[in-house]
């Protein structure tokens, strides 16, 4: 059974279509990257899955059940978002104590070690924490909850590079000991490129990419070389981007590149190299823009 199964999922707010006919599944024990520009529909999608809002049309299953107001399914989920509001009366220790009672798989030793790692002051009012410390508190809850489905929606606003690395390290270490399904929604794609095994890319409410990270790496390539050779090599492939300087051109191509193809590129004096995940995502998103 899939952890999440969405089919034709659509969410409209008056005249805005936040999600447009989105279909995908999330499987057990994998780390997903939910990518896309601001306003692409990432947060709406996560709100739908976590039962915080309801879909206009389409079907959605969370652990095989409808998520809205479904206690049994929702208890298996933790959703850490940058915009999480905390009541003014709460101190850090209150939030931790509540989380301990609300999440069935909560590991308090792990939580306390994260609090120490992030130097979180337990007795401080949550509303008086800095931006980065608020994010660290969210990250702590999200990791220590050990929920079978864990969402991080831009969890590290204000976190410095060291704290972010700490988050990635702790996530990976804990994930290997306690496998679960993790969805990371972020703009810092290069930072998480090694973490995520599968990419879901949203653009203006549409799911434009649903692929394994490794597959995608082999699928999107930069080809640099003489104009005629490159144009010849490009036929039959999707050209995502093209920039020309004199007689030399560089194109970003999407397609399959097997060994024979690589040899052919070499013969044509074309330099073929894989692009980073971030570049691939940028190209795939920009290409759609020029389509219209």
């Amino acid at each position: 059974m899939s952890v999440v199964a969405a089919n034709g999922l659509t969410k409209r707010y008056r005249d805005v279509t936040a999600l447009d006919n989105v279909s995908f599944t999330l499987e057990e024990n994998a780390i997903y990257g939910l990518l896309g520009r601001n306003g692409a529909g990432k947060t709406t999608l996560m709100q739908l899955i976590t039962g915080q809002t309801s879909a206009t049309s389409g079907s959605l299953e969370l652990f095989g059940e409808h998520p809205y107001e479904n206690e049994r399914a929702l208890m298996k989920v933790v959703f850490i978002k940058e915009s999480q509001k905390y009541p003014t009366a709460y101190k850090v220790k209150h939030v931790l104590s509540l989380a301990r009672h609300l999440f069935p798989n909560w590991d308090d030793d792990f939580a306390q070690s994260l609090v120490d790692d992030f130097n979180l002051p337990r007795g401080r009012d949550v509303r008086k924490l800095s931006r980065g410390m608020t994010s660290a508190l969210g990250v702590t809850i999200g990791l220590a909850a050990r929920a079978p489905l864990t969402f991080f929606d831009e969890p590290y606003l204000g976190l410095d590079a060291v704290a972010r690395q700490l988050f990635y390290d702790r996530l990976l270490a804990d994930y290997s000991e306690h496998p679960r399904t993790v969805v990371l929604s972020t703009h810092l794609i290069d930072e998480v490129a090694d973490l995520i095994e599968h990419v879901l890319l949203l653009d203006r409410g549409k799911l434009v990419l649903d692929a394994d990270t490794d597959e995608l790496r082999g699928e999107v390539m930069d080809a640099t070389g003489p104009v005629e050779a490159v144009d010849d090599f490009s036929t039959g492939r999707e050209v995502l981007h093209r920039e020309q300087l004199g007689g030399v051109v560089r194109v970003t191509l999407r397609g399959s590149f097997d060994n024979a193809e690589r040899m052919r590129a070499k013969k044509l004096a074309i330099d073929l190299e894989p692009v980073s995940l971030q570049q691939a995502v940028v190209r795939l998103t920009m290409e759609r823009k020029t389509d219209r």
């Binding site: 976590t50 039962g51 915080q52 107001e69 479904n70 206690e71 929702l74 208890m75 989920v77 933790v78 959703f79 978002k81 999480q84 509001k85 905390y86 009541p87 003014t88 009366a89 709460y90 509540l98 989380a99 609300l102 999440f103 929920a147």
Partner: peptide, 19 residues
């Protein structure tokens, strides 16, 4: 105030509206 402040937090923690 317990509604306007605690309810959004509760939803974020996976608590249903009914509970």
């Amino acid at each position: 105030v317990s509604i306007s402040q605690v309810f959004p937090f509760a939803l974020g923690m996976g608590v249903t509206r009914r509970t």
